[in-house]
Amino acid sequence: MATAEHKSTRGIWIVFTILLVVTVSEVFLALWWPGSWPALVLNFIFIIMTFTKAFYIISEFMHLKYEVKNLIVSLIVPMTLFIWFIIAFLADGNSWLIYRLSVN
């Protein structure tokens, strides 16, 4: 009984450790990233790390990994709207920037 319980909570603590390590490395990078290196690379690393954390929270903590496939698909498919959402709005912001710089 005790060993079975120990086994089942192990996954939770592994995810907890991953989340903690990723967050600490994010703060570390934010503080000690050399200013001469391109910020684009830093931001790219941050986005990758953020999605890594999101994946572990959703799959393990929210238990989605172990759910019926139909439920997973029903949630993932609407989420793909975000791809358009992000591209369209950031492109809009960028075109505003170009416009503002051309006016000034």
Binding site: F89, L90, D92, G93, N94, W96, L97, R100, L101, N104
Partner: peptide
């Protein structure tokens, strides 16, 4: 993000 992109 949009506002940050458009910000001069």
């Amino acid at each position: 993000g949009t506002i940050r992109f458009a910000n001069t």
